[in-house]
Nucleic acid binder design. Structure first.
Length: 935
DNA sequence: CCTGTCACG
DNA sequence: GACGTACGTGACAGGG
């Protein structure tokens, strides 16, 4: 054992901060076996584990302790009976968890210290002093500002949540004084949380100003008569006693009588057995697993209980055998395959999964197919695995042994996959359906476990197979990385030895079937059968077809634009470097920030949580009024974005075979029911700026065809008018009025014929704000007006449209009560965060207000898309893209009007018959030889 | 791999 | 116990 001294590094963890953060960060989890609340303990352990992982490096501490508060009465209460008097009672479900956090700390083999009658802060102060005096370094893991007085002279703080170190400069940033004067500032400013009175009317800013002027609190108070501002002077004179008391309250005690020494805090390895025993006792399934892995020991078997998180398995969840990759069957011949097909027919269902050479369904090759008919009964049919690459000059590239001919397999499977009496079950079936469709198989009918999960659990968790398997089967699937590797030397699936492929691929089908068995009976209990069967599942073939259609993109147009952009960028770069007086990377926000704020000394530099200056467009726009450089950077940024994301990258997405761009839509990505578009994202092609809009000219109709676009007019505002039942808005929509102008007229008492663009613009911003869960802050930022003005606008808006306010309150109330909100079509969006405290509550509230509106709009266009194929069946037209409220079609020239008529009817009637909206839905149409013209 | 920035509805 | 704040997305570049 080494004695604490020079070269030693002590970490002091603020245990109470960990507990509170854990408590507020997690839903109220309970231990399955007895209902004991354990959410905070779970979070606490997760944070400890993360702490241990993060601090294993070269700068690892030599000594560490978690420090807790003990007892509610401290010397500060003797000084001031109101100290911390306004503190809320500890929540009922947190109290029993407090001793468990001590147990957890000990289980991690970390020193756990507390002292009756003292706050953790005092113990931390004392230990910091001792360590400092012994010549060691200290890191205090906490973000509590009360501890900032300790910083300096080898003592730093670490805000674990933001992973930000706070040194003397950080303290200066926060308090405006060096650490040794922090208590003086706090004494003046007081603290509403701890109920430290301070000097009324003086906050941190003013306090720092005064302390810096006078050097210390004592000097200030002794010379209070000389203060110029009369009110401030009087306060300082009258409240002297209160201020001095405040100082004693915030001053930490560095002489706490401790019954241990620094040497007792030496870092110790955790004992796997003790730690895992504790975690098992708490029934932390995934944490037990994760820590077992990191300790390199086998995870103890937990009793089969609910995985941490949502949706406990139903009481009638089927019994299933353990997942055993060794049990899966390698299908080598048609004779091997036949019984699987027969079994699928017999059951009426089969889980299916395809393995391919890549993730691009349009450009990959089929490598194998796996089937599963009952949990644990799964097979893999390899079809295109390559031979052993060590097999000699001619071995590489040949098909490996033990595979049936692909065509024979497809011929045998096609009748099954197209049999209307057999349900084909998949996880993300759109992928498999697209692959099969390229091989001439139109797989149907289908169920999709990803979409089932999405329908039931949107907002609670993601819906990928790995996540679902872990959550609902407590099983971690074989990672694909173990087969393919990663990085440059990554293999494709056809290079995987078949023996390994069987285990991986069949396991996927097995997992999918198990999930299906669990989810299927849950759907109707969650009241989402209609959503799943009416809005999710039927979209799969529609999207698959749209994605296969793709959109024609003219490479030459893009390439020309890229060239022009490159020139323009080089020119701008030169100007920028000249303005800066030096050469730097304009694309680096870090370097740009340093140039603007350090070198050029511009005002208004704000450092974010990583310590870098913010250089977002809003910041640069403010600076641009004063200086040339930021204006040029904004120009450069715009061009750079257009070039890299659009004119360059888009070319790489043109499919070699079709000459078209095939995006992929993520059905279960956005919690609200919206689609997301990836590889490439065709839902964010520029349109707002003139320069950007020209990129749409590269999206073209082939010879003899025309692009037609239909988009819903103001769909979200119409939905809001209906849902909140606002007569004035509903009537305005019925009359076909300019809704923003009408809002402006109502709010500002301006007659419609005297409306100015500026007033209309503000009303428009408010209308959008309402949809987003308006806040004074947000509106102020958007409109670039003082917050007070923004709040006035909002107040006036709510006064004029009280129904909107009522709707927002009702929605929030519903979300609080049910932990979810719903769209008009019954789509459920869970809002677990709504119960959170702190800033997350605000986010959750606004998301809850927005979700039914955005979600209902998403439902409506989904309904339109699902009906569209039939509606345009007789027309020479194809649906290509969806952009949230817009559908893009390609149609033979001459049939535009017929298409518009048919598509418009579908879109405008899409809510019916399930929902009869009080407002009309209107779809505007456009057409042209490219997307810029059509939109 | 994360963060900042910026494109869309 | 402090803390930032309009909703929902995805892609790219820089930087460790």
């Amino acid at each position: 054992m080494t004695q604490f001294g020079k070269g030693c590094h002590l970490h002091l963890i603020d245990g109470s901060a960990f507990i509170f953060r854990a408590y507020h960060a997690l839903p109220p989890l309970t231990r399955k076996s007895d209902g004991l609340p354990i959410g905070a303990v779970s979070g606490f352990c997760n944070m400890l584990q993360k702490y241990v992982e993060d601090n294993a490096g070269p700068d690892a501490p030599t000594h560490v302790a978690v420090i807790f508060d003990k007892g509610s009465h401290t010397f500060r209460n003797d000084l001031y009976d109101q100290y911390k008097a306004n503190r809320e009672e500890m929540p009922e479900d947190l109290r029993p968890q407090i001793p468990l956090t001590r147990e957890a700390t000990i289980a991690f083999n970390i020193a756990c210290k507390e002292l009756e009658g003292y706050e953790a802060d005092d113990i931390i102060a004392t230990l910091s002093r001792q360590a400092r005096e012994a010549g060691g370094r200290v890191t205090i893991i906490s973000s509590d500002k009360d501890l900032m007085q300790l910083v300096g002279d080898g003592v730093e703080m670490l805000d674990a949540m933001k992973n930000r170190r706070i040194d003397r400069d950080g303290v200066m940033e926060k308090f405006g004084v060096w650490p040794d004067r922090v208590v003086d500032v706090q004494a003046l400013a007081g603290d509403s949380v701890d109920n430290v009175p301070g000097a009324p009317g003086i906050g941190i800013k003013t306090a720092a100003l005064l302390i810096n002027e006078w050097g210390s609190l004592e000097e200030l108070l002794d010379n209070a008569e000389q203060i110029k501002q009369p009110k401030r002077r009087q306060t300082l004179i009258d409240k002297r006693e209160q201020i001095e008391l405040s100082k004693r309250l915030v001053q930490l005690d560095e002489e706490t009588p401790l019954d241990f020494t620094l040497d007792d805090l030496e870092v110790r390895e955790p004992d796997p057995e003790t730690l895992l025993e504790f975690l098992t006792k708490m029934e932390f399934r995934s944490l037990t697993k994760r820590i077992s892995d990191s300790l390199g020991v086998e995870a103890p078997v937990l009793p089969d209980t609910t995985p941490e998180g949502a949706n406990p398995p139903e009481d009638d969840a089927p019994e299933m055998p353990a997942i055993d990759p060794e049990s899966y069957v390698w299908v080598k011949t048609a004779e091997d395959l036949a019984p699987w097909i027969a079994a699928a027919h017999e059951r009426g269902w089969v889980a299916v999964d395809t393995e391919t050479t890549g993730l691009d369904e349009m450009a990959c090759d089929l490598v194998g197919i796996s089937l599963c008919i009952e949990p644990g009964e799964a097979c893999y049919i390899p079809l295109a695995h390559r031979g052993d690459s060590d097999g000699g000059l001619f071995g590489d590239g040949d098909l490996a042994e033990g595979q049936m001919p692909m065509q024979a397999a497809l011929d045998a499977l096609k009748p099954l996959f197209e049999d209307p009496a057999v349900m084909k079950i998949g996880q993300n079936m759109k992928y498999d359906a697209k692959v099969f469709s390229r091989y001439g198989i139109d797989i149907s009918p289908i169920d999709d476990t990803m979409l089932m999960s999405y329908a039931m659990n949107a907002g609670l968790h993601t819906h990928g197979m790995d996540a679902l398997s872990e959550r609902y089967l407590s099983h971690v699937p074989i990672p694909i990385k173990t087969l393919l590797g990663s990085g440059k030397k990554m293999k494709t699936f056809d290079q995987v030895p078949i023996g390994d492929a069987v285990k991986y691929a069949a396991e996927d089908a097995d997992i999918t079937l198990r999930l299906w068995k669990i989810f299927k009976p849950q759907l109707h209990r969650a009241h989402v059968t209609r959503v799943y069967e009416g809005l999710e599942r039927p979209l799969v073939p529609v999207l698959a077809e749209m994605e296969r259609n793709g959109v024609q993109v003219d490479r030459n147009v893009l390439s020309r634009m890229s060239g022009a952009f490159a020139q323009k960028m080089a020119q701008l770069e030169e100007e920028i470097h000249e303005l800066a007086g030096e050469s730097f990377n304009v694309g680096s926000p870090k370097q740009l920030g340093e140039i603007l704020f350090d070198k050029m000394g511009l005002e208004g530099g704000k450092k974010g949580k990583t310590g870098a200056y913010g250089t977002g467009a809003d910041v640069l726009e403010d600076l641009a009024t004063e200086h040339e450089l930021p204006a040029r950077v904004l120009d450069w940024r715009q061009i750079s974005k257009l070039k890299s994301t659009y004119t360059d990258a888009l070319q790489g997405h043109i499919n070699a075979e079709t000459g078209r761009v095939h995006t992929s839509y993520v059905i279960a990505g956005a919690n609200t029911g919206r689609l997301a578009s990836t590889d490439p994202n065709l839902q964010n092609i520029p349109v707002r700026s003139e320069e950007g809009r020209r990129i749409r000219e590269a999206f073209v109709a082939p010879e003899g065809k025309t692009l037609v676009s239909l988009d819903y007019s103001q769909i979200e505002l119409r939905i809001l008018a209906h849902m909140a039942d606002i007569d004035a808005l509903k009537q305005a929509f019925r009359d076909g009025q300019d809704i923003h102008a009408m809002t402006a007229s109502e709010m500002f008492n301006v007659p419609m014929d005297e409306m100015t663009p500026e007033i209309r613009r503000q009303a428009k911003a408010i209308n959008f704000g309402v949809i987003y869960g308006i806040s004074g802050f947000g509106l102020a930022r958007n409109l670039r007006i003082p917050r007070k003005d923004a709040q006035d606008f909002i107040d006036r808006y709510f006064e004029r449209f009280p129904g909107i306010k009522a709707y927002m309150d009702d929605t929030t109330e519903f979300a609080k009560e049910h932990k979810r909100v719903e769209t008009l079509f019954g789509r459920v969006i869970h809002t677990p965060e709504i119960a959170a405290k702190g800033p997350r509550a605000g986010f959750a509230k606004r998301a809850a207000i927005n979700a039914p509106i955005q979600g209902t709009a998403a439902d409506i266009i989904r309904r339109a898309m699902i009906r569209m194929p039939e509606a345009i069946e007789g027309l020479p037209a194809k649906m290509l893209l969806q952009v949230h409220d817009e559908l893009l079609f390609e149609v033979e020239t001459g049939a535009e009007d017929a298409l518009i008529e048919a598509a418009r009817a579908v879109m405008e009637g899409a809510a019916e018959p399930v929902v009869k909206l009080d407002v009309p839905l209107v779809a505007d149409a456009g057409q042209g030889s490219n997307w810029a013209e059509a939109h």
